[in-house]
Every structure is written in C-alpha cells, then in structure tokens.
Design a protein around this nucleic acid. Structure first.
Lengths: 340, 340
DNA sequence: ATGAAAGCGCTAACAC
DNA sequence: GTGTTAGCGCTTTCAT
C-alpha cells in the first residue's frame, strides 16, 4: 500500500519487534511461540500486506505445492472437464495444477517431463500419449515424485485410474446386438493407445459372445480428420451388405460419421443406428439425439486428484492404488432395430 | 542414473574439477570462461544428468518464467482453445502457463490473484469475471507484474485484447435484418460483463440503423442453465407477434434454444431462423447447420501470449497495447427469410 | 579465466 | 519463548 516494494518476513519481524525466526514461527504457528507475539506478528503482517514468498518456501521446504499434468490436448473437452475437476480438488488441498500439452508426441512429452522435473513438481499426472513407455519416468520415480496414470500404465508401483473403456464398448455393442444389429461398423480413433485398444477388445468380445466374428472391413481405426471420417462412413455404407449400425468412439468420430451419413441422406435411426462412446454437447443436442455410453468426467478428475493426494500425504499409508471408473449407457433417439 | 539423489551444480563443479561459480558461468555461457572449461563442464553435466533447479534460479533471478491466467472456466471450449494456443506460444518463449478457474466469482478471483502473487508469476492474463474492478490488481501492478486483459479492461496502463463482440453482434443482426427479419429475439448470457454488454450494444445499434427500436420483451440476458434457456425460447415463441429469428450469444444459449425449438416442433429455418455468435461443434454439425459470427480462438491465444511477451521483453519498448480481434460471418443453413 | 563469498526469502536446529 | 545461524541451489559481484 504505502511502500511499493514487496514485503518480506524481515519487514514483518522488524515491524513486530521480533527476530525473523520468531516471526516465521508465529506466522506458521509452529514450535514454541507465545500467544502474544503470534498476535503482534500477525497484525504486523496484515498491516504490511505481507505474503510469504512461495518460491523461497519451496526452496527451503523442497516442496512446490505444484502438480504437473500431461495430456495430449487440453482443449479436448474430455480432458478439459477432467482437468477442471482435478484442479478444483487439488486447489482445496493447497496445490496448483500445471498442465502441459503433449500433442500426442512422445518427444514433446519427454520435454515436458523434463521441464516439470526442473520445476520440481511434487507429483505428476500422466494422460495417454503416443508412446506408452518413457524412461524419464523412472528418473522421476527415483526422485520420489509420485506419478498417477490416467488411462495409462505407468509402472507397477504407481497409482492409476482407468475408465473402463473395454466395458463401455462391450455394453455399447451388446446394446446394438440386442436391438438385432449384426453388422456393426466401428470407428475408433487409434488402436495404439490403451483406451483405443481396450474399446476394440470390448467390441470384439461382445460380438464373440453372440458367435459373430469381427469383420475387418467394418473396423476403421486411425487418427484422422473429421472430413476423412465422413468419407469413411460413406465408404462403409457402400459395403454390401451395408452395416446397420455405427459405433463411434470419440467426438471426432461421431461428428464425422453424422456428417457423412447426412451428406448421403441417410436417416437416423430409420436407415442406420448410431451409438457413441463418450457424451458431448453434440450427442446430446443433435437431432435426433445420440445414445451414448459415457462416464463422469468430474469424478475422473476428482479421483485423479484424490489418488495423487493420497500418495502425497505422508501420514497415510500411501500405497499405490488402481481405480476403475464405471460407465453407463444413456439411451436416446439414435438407435432402433434394423429395417424397422 | 547411478546415484538416485538429484544432482546439483555442486556435483557438476566437482566432477569437472572447477568451482561452482565457474560451473555456473560455463553452463550459462555468461561472463568470462574459457572454451575448454565450457566443454568440460557441459560434459560433466550431461554425464550426471544435471538439470538446473528452476526454483533456486527463480529465487535468485526473481523470475519464475510462469505466467498466470485467470478464466471463469477452463472447460468452456472458448477458453480452452485460447488457453491452448497461449500456452503453446508461451512455451516457445520458455514460459509455463498456470491457469486458475474463478467460477465467475470475484472472491475466488481475488484468492487466485493472491495465490499467483505469492507464487511470483511473471505476468498475469485476466479473462472476464464477475466484478470488473479488483483493487488487488494495483498491487500486482506496483510490483511490476504486467497484466494483459482478455475481453476485460484492466487499467489504462496495461495491455488488452478484445474480441470485437460489438461488431460481431452488429454483423449478425444486420445479416438477419437483410433477410427481412424485424422481430429478432436475443438470448445473451449476462449483460454485466464486457462481452455481453458489447454484444447487446451491437444488436441495438444494427436495429437502430434500420429505424427499429429494441424491444425489451425480445431480449433475455441472464446466466442460466440450458433447460431454462429452452423454456425461454418457447416463451419467446409464444409472443404475438412471435419473433422470426433468434440470435444466440454463446454455446449454452444456442443449445437451449435449439432444444426448446425442437420440443415445440419448430423447423429451422422454415419457421424460425437461428444465428449464433461463437462457433462450436454443435453449430457446425447440427442438422441444419447453424450460421455463426465467429473469430479465431487460436489467434486470440497467440496474441494474448504475444502481448504478454512484449511487455516482458525488456529490450522492447514494452508500451501497453490494445488489440481488437475481428470477427467473421459464416453462412450455413439456419437462416432464411421470414415466412419463406 | 577462475575461486571465494554474498545473498535471494524462508524454515529449522540449536543455543540461551 | 526468543534470537542466532546454517543452508536450500543458484547467480553474480569482487578479488585474484
């Protein structure tokens, strides 16, 4: 207020007429301090507008109260929702969340891990990325930085949270099978990462239960643009016999599929059923609304934070844990029986 | 690799057989160092896997290389896209971006500003939030922390970036007027914040140009849930004479409007035209696709970062700047002439 | 060109 | 209960 320069604990100590050691103890209420000086120091601090310097504290205490989080793309709503919730929970515990975008490139991921290490993050939450295994992680591990994996295996001695993608795809496929569909096209983003692999496994499993074999020509799994997906959808519909249902994994896949179907004048669900994994505004508000198998993003973020906090809290046992997030089917208007 | 404990510059100095002062100079190539020792030190550092401690550097150099950014909600796609782009640009310059969610509450915003101050961020990017004026900002300012406002006025001596919301709404309204609409309903999120106010001004201005007066019963501006917006839309359509076009400001408003219209069996654009400000997946992929007046999120993020970097770079003149981001109309299928 | 030493702001160990 | 001091890891004078 009065003086423009930033106040330090030295200023507070001087103003309260005590040593800086006493000032520190008073402010943190640690060790032996008389109640009188606590009050005197606190008042002085308030009057000066003193705020302890987090950097100096970090250096001294060897804890930055910052958690790093790596995702492929923060602007992907599925990540954004999770980040939001995780940040909220961590904030409550006094931690800040620093997010890095890997662009799904292991090179960038490596650079970010290095950076986070340099910045001395207290913990690291790692989402899926191109390569599953990064040796840098071991380094972190050895430096007692706990890691929590999100839809990603990250070492046996670390915590992990996994959305049950396999079951999600399994339930989705079963739902379509129950409606009488036999030729179910599958559009997935990428089969390399854990989520993609799991989902294809769930799809195959549901099919196998009914004695159907997955047909390779009905499965399209690449990372690709929306326009490309649209033409994929069209090409799938030109197969003979054509698929009667589409199972789309991910927003982009759904968007492309809807676009392709629409360009071709195909009606949902009369001509073809559509079911998507992962709920979005688009699925909710499209006409007709799209049925989905989804999960709770907020819960995911909250649990990620919880797992991290548990590892960080020295008073707890702190053993690594593994959590599976369940999924649920939301029926809307996009699925019917074939030829109905 | 060999030793599990984190390496410091002391270790590097010892390994290279020099003092820590020399090691520092060699690693940073600053001051007078012989090329020979530079090589020796660099090699030692590499061999040990040494990474300078960013916290210690921050304390010493009084710069954290962290920029703070405050938004109401990181999971709002409009913010997420901007954050993503800003982070990318800042990263290139060696800065990390720390994002805080204010939930549109000035109390939380104040707490976050305090927190960022404690963490000694080098700069602060402030998005719109409930209250426009926070005295805490002056404090920051006095501590030489540059602030960049995003759709928000933040002091005359600070930089700011503003999407041209007024013009966006103006162009949108004109587009509808040109199609022959006279009763244009306006659904806006909140008129308290700068973006909302500006948009309503643009709407009014376009109307006035044609000699129409804005009718209060056609304007609905509150922060509200999607379901609520849907019923708002219905109530608007029950007016006599009913509006022939909807101008929605923001995703949520569009979603609610579409839902309401659909519930009522109203067809777009035959029964009513819809135009939205701000492009989204929903607008793009809805059937029919929704025309929009929009702007480039990536550009916004990039320019925000650029403004900040310019203020941070001591070699530049560093005078505060003000940037207006233009908008453009994208015609799609949701607008027609009334009664056509 | 290099080494020694001070100090960024803070906390904790030790003395009194 | 309080003051003094060391030190977190680094950069930067200031001598040499």
């Amino acid at each position: 207020m009065t003086n423009r320069s930033r106040k330090t604990i030295k200023d507070v100590a001087a103003a309260a007429g005590v040593s800086i050691g006493t000032a520190s103890r008073a402010l943190n209420r640690r060790g032996r301090v008389s109640e009188a000086t606590v009050i005197r120091v606190t008042n002085a601090a308030k009057k000066l507008g003193y705020q302890p310097d987090a950097i100096a504290q970090s250096l001294r205490l060897k804890s930055t109260m910052v958690i790093g989080m790596l995702v492929t793309d923060l602007s992907n709503p599925f990540f954004a929702g999770v980040i939001r919730a995780a940040e909220k929970r961590l904030q409550q515990a006094g931690y800040a969340l620093l997010v890095g975008n890997t662009d799904n490139e292991s090179e960038r991921e490596g650079a970010l891990i290095d950076l986070f290490r340099r910045r001395r993050v207290d913990g690291l939450i790692m989402g899926p990325c191109a390569a599953e295994n990064v040796p840098l992680l071991e380094d972190l591990d050895q430096n007692d930085v706990p890691i929590v994996g999100y839809d990603r295996d990250v070492g046996s001695d670390q915590s992990g949270l996994h959305v049950d993608h396999r079951r999600a795809a399994y339930e989705a496929t079963r739902h379509l099978l129950n409606l009488g569909h036999e030729r179910i096209a599958l559009l997935s983003s990428s089969s390399k990462l854990s989520p993609g692999r799991e989902r294809i496994a769930g799809y195959t499993e549901a099919l196998a239960e009914r004695g159907f074999e997955p047909r390779d020509d009905l499965i399209r799994a690449h990372k690709s643009s929306m326009d490309f997906v649209a033409s994929e959808a069209l090409s799938l519909m030109s197969l003979r016999p054509a698929p009667t249902a589409f199972l789309t994994l991910g927003t982009r896949m759904l968007a492309g599929t809807l676009q392709g179907l629409r360009q071709n004048g195909l009606r949902i669900p009369q001509d073809v059923s559509v079911l998507t994994v992962g709920d979005t505004d688009l699925a909710r508000l499209h006409a007709p609304s799209i049925s989905t198998v989804t999960w709770d993003l907020e819960l995911v973020g909250q649990m990620l934070a919880e797992l991290m906090l548990r590892r960080l809290d020295k008073s707890e046992d702190g053993a690594p844990q593994r959590i599976i997030i369940p999924t649920q089917l939301i029926e809307r208007e996009s699925c019917g029986s074939p030829g109905a």
